[in-house]
Design a protein around this nucleic acid. Structure first.
Lengths: 273, 273
DNA sequence: TATAATAATGACTAGCCGGTCACGTGTCAA
DNA sequence: TTGACACGTGACCGGCTAGTCATTATTATA
């Protein structure tokens, strides 16, 4: 295990126990038996550590649920898998999930919150797509309401899970959620959220300039030649008047192996696909 | 306005903006133009301030929704009122609601979290009672699931509200939630939460000794003769082998005017009624 | 083995925090 | 006018923090 991973592991554990703000860098370094100086050889600041943890786990969570869902053969099986794996992944990453539940927004740095929010929005997007696969056009117009409500139910059960700390019959919970979702999708008629902008607060706000800036930053994080070239070409393509989706999506696939790039690959894929 | 209220007002504002942990006592006193010393004439510590804010608003929120619901004539009207007033009260106490949403659990003192959790459980109890009024015995067995899910939906809409910061058509939202709740209450069959202890994490844990201790503490907070006597008698009654509910409920009504006593009056009323 | 290069250390800085307390300041009754 | 008293102040304390950097330890190279 690299020192970076070691630190992230220890930090995650302590953050989950006592909260991010309340855990000092000294405590983290004591916990993994290195010096304070060594910490700052791996991370520029405490914020960068938090940022890395968020990136790492958010990426994995979304990825793993997505991958599992893809393996379902029928749409309704996919919905079931979605619920099962959401809970499985969350209980696999207990430490991080606890931070997400407990810490929520608040104290921590504003840009970190934005990043979390952004991932939450991405997850909602995935759910929206899935719900259309399962229920088709009958949910047209009420999809935003549905996403919000289903997400809310999942959140509620997750919170309950982390408070009770007891083993969970995930299959039964998924059965129950599939039934509830189906009821709401097929029988409800009064819609509250009409507009996608009401549901997705952050996802649309990234300008091309912002993305290019982000790519500039990411370019400094890698030494891989293929990746460096891909980022360069991606920037050039994005700044053209009519970026060609095929090229963008193609270049993105060159970056998917490196998890540092994940959020931006997910974002660009969604935007140009 | 008393100095105490002045401080609580300023603090609430700053807490909502920047988070509880991130707001220093100095900033609070600067904001309301008093000295740091004066702060500690009103509150023993920063924690006591936070505690007071939680007590004050939690009490008011539960009370106001309860009062509004009682004025509904039919059960289904009551459900509608419940949703409407939950959102109205929350947007009336924007500052506090934001703290509740953002801060959630974490960083702050453990006993404060417990107290919030406790109020949340009380609110769930109220909702459970209401759902039985509306849907009768057909929800027997699935009431815990229902409470969790309905609560989750409300939470989700609240969060959405505080993120978007746009005006809300509360009536329409309530219509939508009544429909959704009705669907789930009447049509769902697969139940996940079977047991009340799975839903209410904290509410059952208060021993008589704990309550008597709390009353001892509260006794020092008042000078009113009726209140002092009532607390004394309440303590004696509670320590008897078979406390008589009628006497307890009667004594409680003597304490309801003073908001300091609220959480314990709500608790005892629920327990002995 | 000697030297250069790299990795790791922990004492240290500057700054913020909650909380205290000796010291004004203003207001009464004597 | 004097003294007693309560109210209010802000400099100060001890303790904590994130982050730095001169020093030391370790490894690689010649």
């Amino acid at each position: 295990m690299t020192r970076k991973q070691l630190i992230m592991d220890s930090a995650l554990q302590l953050f989950a126990e006592k909260g991010i703000e309340a855990t000092s860098v000294q405590q983290i370094t004591d916990h993994c038996g290195i010096s304070k100086g060594a910490f700052y050889l791996s991370f520029k600041s405490k914020d960068e550590l938090i940022y890395s943890i968020i990136e790492h786990f958010m990426n994995n969570i979304i990825r793993e649920v997505d991958r599992a869902v893809k393996e379902g053969s029928t749409p309704s099986e996919k919905l079931h898998i979605y619920f099962v794996h959401t809970f499985k992944v969350m209980s696999q990453y207990t430490g991080f999930a606890e931070i997400l539940m407990k810490e929520k927004v608040s104290a921590i740095n504003e840009t970190l919150i934005e990043r979390i929010q952004y991932y939450v929005d991405l997850a909602k997007k995935s759910l929206e797509k899935l719900l259309f696969e399962v229920f088709g056009d009958q949910i047209e117009g009420k999809q935003y309401d549905l996403v919000l409500v289903v997400n809310g139910m999942v959140q509620a059960y997750l919170q309950n899970f982390f408070e009770s700390c007891k083993p969970f019959d995930v299959i039964k919970l998924a059965d129950s959620l599939v039934e509830k979702t189906t009821l709401l999708a097929t029988k409800s008629e009064i819609v509250f959220l009409q507009d996608s902008s009401q549901l997705y607060s952050r996802i649309k706000n990234y300008s091309i300039e912002h993305i290019v800036e982000e790519l500039d930053y990411l370019q400094q994080q890698t030494n891989d030649r293929l990746e460096l070239e891909s980022i360069q070409l991606l920037k050039e393509e994005l700044m053209m008047e009519m970026p060609r989706p095929a090229i963008i999506v193609g270049l993105i696939s060159n970056l998917e192996k490196n998890e540092n790039f994940n959020w931006i690959t997910i974002y660009l894929k969604d935007r140009f696909n």
